[in-house]
Design a protein around this nucleic acid. Sequence first.
RNA 1: CGGGGCGUAGCGCAGUCUGGUUAGCGCGCAGCGUUCGGGACGCUGAGGUCGGAGGUUCAAAUCCUCUCGCCCCGACCA
Length: 574
Amino acid sequence: MRISKLFGKTQREVPAEAETTSHQLLLRAGMIHQVAAGVYAYLPLGWRVLNKLAAIIRNEMDRAGGQELIMPVLQPLELWQETGRDKAFGKGLFTLSDRRERQLALGPTHEEVVTELVKYNVQSYRDLPLLLYQIQNKFRDEPRPRGGLIRVREFLMKDLYSFDTDEAGLDASYQKMLQAYKNIFDRCGLPTILVEADSGAIGGKESHEFMTIAESGEDEIIYCEKCKYAANVEKAECAKEKLEAEEPLPREEVATPGAGTIEEVADFLKIPPSHTLKAVFYIADGKMVFVVIRGDIGVNEVKLQNALGCVELRLATEDEIIKAGIVAGAASPIGIKGIKVIADNSITSGANFVAGANKPETHLKNVNYPRDFKATLVTDIAQARAGDRCPKCGGKLASTRGIEVGHVFKLGTFISQKLGALFIDQNGASHPRVMGCYGIGLDRLLAAAIELNHDDKGIIWPVSIAPYQVYLCPLYKENSKAEDVAEKVYAELEAEGIEVLFDDRRESPGVKFNDADLLGIPLRVTVSPRTLEKNSAEIKKRSEKEAQLVPLEGIAIKLKELISQGLSRLSNSV
RNA sequence: CGGGGCGUAGCGCAGUCUGGUUAGCGCGCAGCGUUCGGGACGCUGAGGUCGGAGGUUCAAAUCCUCUCGCCCCGACCA
């Protein structure tokens, strides 16, 4: 490709709207263009990268036994209502109606459609396991798109769905996908870690995310410094400090003037926060919920939402709390009627806690569970934090930010049950198919690749996903043959199947070198009067400072060698 | 949805507080000439419903009302 003809120009200045590095570089390199909030067009260079990612993903999906197909973006809303996931997705689902007033949704994912599809094509255990995938645009009306391609409303996703006869089969499919994903991210030059995750609106029981560590990421990862434990903060567990068992004492009212928060109460009574019980109020699908947790621990709202099985969850307002007859700042789980009480399992160790008395500026000492109050449900709803202890090995937990580039789910049978997607086993008995689903957001993957591969000059593409492999750069000087020679080199490299971006502009060297760096093409070949004196050209790797002079004769072979070296380094682990 | 910020040429900005000729600057773009190993220079030129609507005024980019869009933080979110 000749740069003089390339659609999309580089920009010297950083567009004001971009704050994230990948966003800035993508715009400056002329790879994307914003059309609306969270909606982007890809220009030729960006599109080439996206296609390279797609090719790697296809290759690994096929190797893992996947079959590619394509399903519609437009889906009947009815299908979503059948599984109830229209509610789980809520406003995130783009909906529209057709001319006959039929309700449709733009697909945010395809479990329903693929399950229907498989239902009509596979009835026997003989046809399982089955792995089907597509690479297709998804639509999600995100409340807040951000960071350029990090979170968008229309995006390209690879989604694969596995169908098995039983749990063991699902485990095997899941393992295959974990390996395939690892291969994909390795080949894209992207170090990732696998973390335990919540399954959110997709549903299901077990789920993992592939995260790249990056400050610009939206997710917080909790990991153990000692063992391999790592989890999204939404899911992360921590070992809760066990309190000493004490003999339960009789309850006792104590005045706590001016003390409302846990810190104030603990300070006032000169006890550690872990000896208090914290009350937090939520509205879950319109109903008030009373949450009790040890004073030193925060509530994890994702865990709480899962425990409640509700769709909408928010903190209650002060008005709502007062209306429920509760004294804010001194709320008590004792004597609560008509309100669901959810307790974190941290309250089951230790004894004689301080809790509210439901009287202004008054608390109760020696509150004991379950002697003094009942909870509808006692489970883990605690927010793990850096500094807590690891639930697996007791080591210290740390925290970092990450970008979620892949997410895999063990769905189980809830969708196939709802949609009646059954198969017949060897004995002629019907069972629901056991499903898994596996997604990679390509746009985000592209953004993450830049977040992890750049310097102050621009992008540094790994060879495997670079839009072009070689940047051919003749330097102009009067009476020099550099341009003519470069034309010949260009023709030769193209003939050899090397992907060349030919900077045929009569720009000054600085402009060309800076653009080459910004675009991040892995290999730069300079042809100039200086190199021609030695009948050579200069090759410089984008990732390295030093350049080397190589004879023009056989330069294509030399470049091919460097390209395949770069590729093999990325696929070492395969 | 709550908080903050911003909409003036393709990009980055000034001008708005305090209303007053033809709305400026830099980059980029077009033409001509000189240059050519890390964002060269000179001259000439094109390019603007000042986000939109309504209002106040002799007069609005500037003041008022409404509205649309974009970014950031939070809520939220595979």
